[in-house]
């Protein structure tokens, strides 16, 4: 049984409110500016009034084969065994941005400020996943708990299967997010037509 945790995103429910984006910045104390662990990508097709909108949330989805780890000269990036989370040790980061160059999803984020130039990215809210002090219900990342549309689910394959989500047979790509087979990011989708 794999410990890898997956994100599951129901694109049909998302209306792009960005609660997850702000919740993530708040929880992780990411300052206003260029760094944002989660970004909304909106694709608009069709002429008024026959418009079609697709929202995708792009983030680090904790690849099973994370290239960022390979390229980091400071060995600052780690994949956790218990969850599959890819974690950066910011103390070690030298802001060379090698990781950013390798990641097709721009998951490594850099605030272009002098005050905080080091790489930062989604931690899978590993503090929340491992916190039993405050009784966060089901201990999920803050983006999952924030989603007003309940469009984001989270868990291992087995946990998600219990929620009726078959990760092995779920969509890997949607409009706005293309699966990279080599990296195999840990995110699956319900695709919006």
């Amino acid at each position: 049984m794999s410990n890898q945790k997956y994100f599951y995103f129901d694109q049909t429910l998302c209306f792009g409110c960005e609660a997850c984006v702000v919740a993530c910045k708040d929880w992780n104390d990411v300052k206003p500016g260029t760094a944002s662990y989660r970004r909304k990508v909106t694709t608009e097709n069709g002429d008024y009034p026959s418009v079609k909108i697709h929202n995708a949330l792009v983030s680090c989805y904790h690849c099973e084969e994370p290239l960022c780890i390979d390229v980091c000269p400071m060995i600052a990036i780690t994949k956790m065994e218990d969850t599959g989370a890819v974690i950066v040790d910011r103390e070690k980061c030298i802001s060379c941005k090698s990781c950013k160059g390798m990641c097709p999803y721009s998951a490594p984020q850099f605030d272009d400020s002098v005050a905080d130039p080091k790489m930062q990215k989604c931690t899978m809210c590993w503090d929340r996943l491992n916190d039993d002090t405050w009784n966060i219900y089901q201990q999920v990342p803050v983006c999952v708990a924030s989603c007003v549309q309940r469009a984001i689910k989270f868990g291992t394959k087995e946990e998600l299967m219990e929620a009726g989500i078959d990760i092995d047979n779920a969509e890997k790509s949607i409009v706005g997010y293309e699966h990279d087979a080599k990296l195999n990011p840990s995110v699956r989708f319900k695709r919006k037509a």
């Binding site: 794999s2 410990n3 890898q4 099973e64 084969e65 780890i69 390979d70 060995i75 990036i77 780690t78 994949k79 956790m80 065994e81 218990d82 969850t83 599959g84 974690i87 590993w126 996943l129 491992n130 916190d131 039993d132």
Partner: peptide
């Protein structure tokens, strides 16, 4: 097959692995 097994075998020299977050928490 555990994904970690594969990763461990191939790329351990470039990667760090931490295990047992429940252990950490505990």
């Amino acid at each position: 097959m555990s994904v970690f097994k594969d990763i461990n075998e191939k790329k351990v020299s470039r990667r760090s692995f931490l295990k047992g977050m429940s252990l950490v928490a505990g």
